[in-house]
């Protein structure tokens, strides 16, 4: 049975690119101020935290899992970093603590998923709840936490016209690109999302790779928490909770398949940009805050639906082949 080497593209393959183009045209008409350089730079800076967390989310989704504790990890590590800065006045201690704590939270996720075989949705849901509660307890009853001006150095230093938060994101993303494309670890991530059995048959410890993915995601969220609190000069109740929705949107808009194993990670950079832009646009247009949730829900549902329809189309083409000898 020979398959056709190149299946012809059908209408659905053009659906996603055309929506992106339509979106751009819509912005150009509705909010021309969007396309000014200054606004684009600020979009990138605003998107930096989402971007940093999305790097982790890309790995998790490529491996066929999900992590919905991302927002809570950013929240909790942010609180830890700013609290520590308040008491020690030392940026290095804050940074190390945020990254290490993030890594530890990720380790719990990874252990639950890879070793205890709890579905990642449930594992990370539990961790999400633990961390959002823990974060709020640490902030204390006043509900806000101000870390002082010097704490803003991390995210708000201007270098070559861009804020340092954006630079941190760009550098981390480049590092991520190299890791995912050029290292064994990167290949294994794709392989896990593709066919875990086959990876085991190659004698490679899939469990270890899965744990590493969650640990790295946690560490990235730690950096995200640090950058976020530094950007705001402190933190308050429930800030950045629910951010995973933005991250998932960025990853799927970027072209990574929700079922794992497939997708070009470079797309995630644009996915983050589109998500940050849409967020920016909603604010520019003065849309009702509660409308945001509706929009993000629709975006994720729509994009994943398009992917599934594409896959179904392909399966149908396959099934309709006739017996040949």
């Amino acid at each position: 049975m020979m398959l056709k080497r190149f299946l012809p593209k059908s209408g659905i393959d053009y659906l996603k690119p055309s929506i992106v183009v339509l979106f751009a045209v819509f912005i150009a008409i509705k909010a021309p101020v969007f396309f000014t350089i200054n606004n684009l730079i600020s979009v990138l800076s605003q998107g930096a935290v989402i971007g940093i967390a999305s790097i982790g989310m890309s790995m998790v989704i490529l491996a066929g899992e999900i992590d919905i504790s991302v927002g809570a990890m950013v929240y909790c590590t942010g609180v830890i970093a700013s609290e520590l800065y308040l008491s020690t006045n030392n940026l290095i201690i804050s940074t190390v603590a945020a990254v290490v704590c993030g890594g530890f939270f990720g380790l719990i996720n990874g252990f639950g998923v890879a070793k205890l075989k709890i579905p990642s949705l449930i594992t990370t849901l539990s961790v999400c709840n633990i961390l959002s509660g823990l974060g709020s307890i640490l902030i204390g009853s006043e509900g806000t936490l101000s870390a002082g001006e010097r704490y803003k150095i991390i995210a708000q230093t201007k270098i070559l016209g861009l804020l340092s938060s954006a630079w941190i994101y760009i550098l981390l993303f480049l590092l991520f690109l190299i890791i995912i494309r050029k290292t064994r670890f990167g290949r294994y991530i794709y392989a896990i999302g593709d066919n875990q059995d086959a990876l085991r048959a190659c004698g490679i410890r899939a469990d270890f790779t899965i744990i590493m993915i969650f640990v790295l995601t946690g560490m990235l969220c730690g950096i995200g928490g640090l950058v976020n609190t530094s950007r705001l000069g402190g933190t308050q109740f429930n800030i950045s909770l629910g951010m995973e929705v933005y991250c998932i949107a960025a990853v799927v808009v970027g072209g990574i398949s929700m079922s794992g194993g497939r997708g070009n990670v470079l797309g995630v950079f644009f996915g983050v940009f589109i998500v940050a832009a849409l967020d920016n646009l909603l604010r520019l247009m003065g849309v009702n805050v509660y409308m945001y949730n509706v929009v993000w829900g629709i975006v994720i549902f729509g994009v994943v639906m398009i992917d599934i329809l594409k896959k179904k189309q392909k399966a149908r083409d396959l099934e309709r082949q006739v017996f040949e000898t």
Binding site: D194, D197, A198, C202, I204, G261, R262
Partner: peptide, 16 residues
């Protein structure tokens, strides 16, 4: 077959 369908032929031969 125990293959990675979404990876290249070379990756499949040398994954281990």
């Amino acid at each position: 077959l125990k293959l990675f369908s979404m990876r290249s032929v070379a990756d499949n031969i040398y994954m281990s």
